[in-house]
Design a protein around this nucleic acid. Sequence first.
DNA 1: CTAGCTCAGTTGGTTAGAGCAGCTGACTCT
DNA 2: AGAGTCAGCTGCTCTAACCAACTGAGCTAG
Lengths: 226, 226
Amino acid sequence: MARDIQERIKRLIIDGRLPSGASLPTEPELMELLGVSRNSVREALKALQAMGIVEIRHGFGTYVGPMSMAPMIEGLTFRTVAGHYRGEDSLLQLLELREAVETGLIARLAGRVPAADLAELDATVARMRTEAAAGGVQAETDRAFHATLHRGLENLLLSEVLEAFWDAFHRVRTDLVAVHADPETTVRQHEEILAAVRDGDGPRAERAVRDHFDNIRHRLRSSGER
Amino acid sequence: MARDIQERIKRLIIDGRLPSGASLPTEPELMELLGVSRNSVREALKALQAMGIVEIRHGFGTYVGPMSMAPMIEGLTFRTVAGHYRGEDSLLQLLELREAVETGLIARLAGRVPAADLAELDATVARMRTEAAAGGVQAETDRAFHATLHRGLENLLLSEVLEAFWDAFHRVRTDLVAVHADPETTVRQHEEILAAVRDGDGPRAERAVRDHFDNIRHRLRSSGER
DNA sequence: CTAGCTCAGTTGGTTAGAGCAGCTGACTCT
DNA sequence: AGAGTCAGCTGCTCTAACCAACTGAGCTAG
């Protein structure tokens, strides 16, 4: 029955063709509109908020959510952390998920990345090299590299899903495992990926991505838990 | 603060190493444990339920959820439906997401699917052929084909994610678009995928999967909205 | 006249207490 | 011994009140 309330609020959004950011009725209005108590309205909104369908701003109102992959990140992260603590190799599975998707995509990308993005990737790798010399590559830089790379796919959904995977992986790794990367290797592998993509050499790019993930996996396996 | 309550309940699960299905404290117990009102406890639980972290059974108790991808399906479905109604090509993006991932994976699978799974795939395709002759291929059969195929990857997370994508796509397509498939073509393409995988011919398998998705995409584009 | 402050009104956040509804298991009656 | 019943847990919904964050109109000081 609480489920029913959620569905009806969803219908409000869909039937009203409401875009992200559009304002929804206030809680008292929803009470009357749906014929239920404020409490039930709030519980439904909380659930929808958790799914990213709705955004609630205290003292301001309720709005249609950004429909991002944020809830998925949240769920994936928790699932992975919980699995890890129970002794499963959940973090490795998550890494393999990323590897499978990214190696599958890189061939599509080879030779098709716009010049502007290639230039941005050059800058990102350069920053990576600077950071490596200064101690270690920042996570944000790695993220930027992959995000820029996947932009060439021209599929926002796909980019967001990949970023969600990256994010979940990174959060779990940061929380659970002390990984000591070899910055020099990391930089070199990114350079290789970029070079292969620029040359339009699909197989070489695929190999480069696989090497990159092999590297991460190896470091993951050989590192102790915190 | 509501966020804080959710986090503390999560900690209960993680710190307690609770497996899926383990029972959580009752609402009154959580009230006292967390020092908040019943209402706040319930709102937090509702949000966690929406994320699949917790499972609530009326008159029975609250339990650690199955950590499945069900919430992701829910979110993806809604996002796609909402986008579709706003005139975006969200369904096509979802299809491309599936295509990208599945074409990337099929090469890994070629020649590595266990004999038992191959036999099951034979049976599934046979059923598909029977159904095609009887009017049309059942959605469940298509789902079974892909699910069995990906089982060979031996990565539960990956299988679930793919199934989630399949599910979201199928639900949206069923709700929104009347697609008239050519059953004969569908069956033939699945046979080709299976044959290529059995032979361990990666490139051929990749081509077969791509053809399959091309077929779906073409039908999608040429079909009117309901 | 304008810049800044204040305060009232609106919106979501939280609490409290009461009663309803589904499920389980032990008790009772046949 | 078996089936029906009921007491007790559980979560579900409602009402009513107050707290907290934000907005915007109006006031005050410069």
